[in-house]
Design a binder for these strands. Structure first.
Length: 485
RNA sequence: GGCCCCAUGGUCAAGUGGUGAAGACGUCGCCCUCUCACGGCGAAAUCAGGAGUUCGACUCUCCUUGGGGUCACCA
């Protein structure tokens, strides 16, 4: 056992949505495997045919691949312990369920889902869940009823006394009284296993060494341990993860904002930033104070001991910061491409300088989705006002701006080198000629070109993005406006 | 409600009997500056409460309080 190769699995159900919590489980599972030279496998838990969503499996594949979480075995690439889709493993579950019945560790139950729950003589405070009414049915008559075609499910027969303990790698030893355990359904009447059974069978057959999952499974883990024991299987490591909650401390849900990977992408976050963010939700690298890590780096430093027990609040402000870090650090050409994808449709036919725009945007953008609003003043002409030109510190107002723009307009018109240096020289010289500070010229020019007081980038940058002809047209319009008022 | 789990600043957190209780996000201030950012510097802010154990508790034990999870033919 100690020499066994570490193996973890990500076992999502195909619901069509990759929730942040699921993704974090996948990440940690991947990290635990990779950090110990182990294998990471993907298994699809589609045993609830009512919740099955078309195309959901593709969402899973796509998300994992976007995040760089490549698996070693799975439904798409196969592996030594396939199939990796539970609906294709039905005979396996049936076989072990029958073995359990034969051993007396499980029994058929003929109750229908409706008749099971709290009716008749049950004491509300004492009882819970299923009342074990079919537990005492004689095996012979049970077999007879089955043969006659009666529908049945198979339930696990829990010990009535004693207690069960297991050790979780994060939470330590956990003990429960066996009488607290419900005779849970192993095999549903439709022949499909429940998660409670399938996860045990598959994890064993697929040789999973570390079962990593959310802490919501903590309280049902003793039942799984009993199953391992009944089947004579070695109990694997359990690594339960603290829940991810919203700002109000409640389990993260839609009302907290975007909670699925796709939502976050739509919001303009980068996969790498999301992965980095999620890695730190419930885990920390010890004395290390750095927080920006690539997936490869995480593979090196991730340790189970660093996993926390307390629920973690998902912080969008921190995600914003992480995203900014990744945007700032992105190779310029890559960034430029991303910007163009978004800016091109915004500009339409109007020409612009994408390189300059990307340069101006890189230190300022938080999320990609912010870009359209940030560049609206470039993609279209905004309404003018005199207040636009007022700046107390620079001692500027509309009259002063009118004077300045009037003076530099002809120079701009005559400028044949519409470039950083060309414009810079022009403003330098004009400033001297007018006996004004260059900053004042720039302030006026920027406001005039942008028709917006606050802009990403300065006067020259704005002029360059817009190009000479658009810049001159805008200034012409501004001058018109200022003269009229 | 029963059972299980958790508890360091607003948030993520380091810490493992002796520390001035790291760091990050956010917030605030200053610097830089043609605006906004970026960047730099700095500040405020935490051991839920109460009993123990100990020469000494954020660290160990118990209780209280607070929070979360779970009680399906869902996973």
């Amino acid at each position: 056992m100690m020499t066994r190769k570490v193996k973890t699995r990500f076992a999502p159900s195909p619901t069509g949505i990759m929730h942040i919590g699921n993704l974090r489980s996948a990440l940690y599972e991947y990290l635990i495997a990779r950090s110990r030279g182990g294998a990471f496998i993907l298994r699809i838990e589609d045993t609830d045919r009512e919740r099955y969503v078309e195309g959901a499996i593709e969402v899973i594949f796509r998300t994992l691949s976007q995040c760089g979480l490549h698996h070693d075995e799975g439904p798409d690439i196969g592996g030594p312990n396939g199939p990796y889709t539970q609906s294709e493993r039905l005979p396996l579950y049936k076989k072990y369920a029958e073995q359990l019945i034969a051993q007396g560790d499980a029994y058929p139950c003929f109750c229908t889902s409706g008749t099971v729950s709290g009716n008749e003589d049950v004491d509300e405070t004492e009882s819970f869940g299923y009342n074990r009414r079919c537990r005492g049915i004689d095996p012979g008559t049970a077999r007879e009823r089955i043969r006659s075609g009666e529908a049945y499910a198979i339930r696990q027969k829990m010990p009535l006394d004693g207690k069960t303990s297991f050790t979780d790698d994060v939470y330590g030893v956990i003990t429960v009284m066996n009488k607290e355990l419900e005779d849970q359904i192993l095999l549903k009447s439709d022949g499909y296993p429940t998660y409670n059974f399938a996860n045990v069978v598959d994890d064993h057959l697929m040789e999973i060494t570390h079962i990593v999952r959310g802490s919501e499974y903590l309280s049902s883990t003793p039942k799984y341990c009993l199953l391992y024991e009944s089947l004579g299987w070695e109990i694997p490591h359990f690594v339960h993860l603290p829940l991810i909650v919203g700002e109000d401390g409640k389990k993260l849900s839609k009302r907290h904002g975007s909670t699925s990977f796709d939502d976050l992408i739509k919001d303009g976050y980068l996969p790498k930033a999301i992965v980095n963010m999620i890695a730190f939700l419930g885990w920390a690298p010890g004395d290390e104070t750095e927080e920006i890590f690539s997936l490869g780096e995480l593979e090196q430093i991730f340790r189970i001991e660093g996993i926390n027990k307390a629920p973690a609040v998902f912080s969008y402000p921190k995600l914003n910061w992480m995203n900014e870090q990744y945007i700032r650090a992105m190779p310029f050409d890559t960034w430029k491409k991303r910007v163009q994808e978004i800016a091109d449709p915004c500009f339409g036919d109007r020409p612009y300088d994408p390189g300059k725009l990307a340069e101006v945007l890189q230190p300022r953008v938080t999320k990609l989705s912010d870009i359209p609003a940030m560049i609206r003043f470039l993609t279209g002409r905004l309404p003018l006002s005199r207040e636009l030109f007022y700046n107390k510190r620079a001692k500027l107002d509309a009259d002063k701006a009118a004077y300045i723009l009037e003076a530099i307009f002809p120079r701009l018109q005559a400028l044949d080198e519409w470039s950083e240096t060309g414009l810079d020289h022009l403003l330098e010289e004009a400033g001297q000629a007018l006996d004004l500070k260059k900053g004042q010229l720039m302030g006026s020019l920027r406001a005039g070109l942008a028709a917006q007081q606050v802009t990403p980038g300065g006067a020259i940058e704005t002029a360059l993005i817009l190009g000479q002809s658009e810049s001159l047209e805008r200034l012409d319009r501004v001058l018109d406006f200022l003269r009229k008022e």
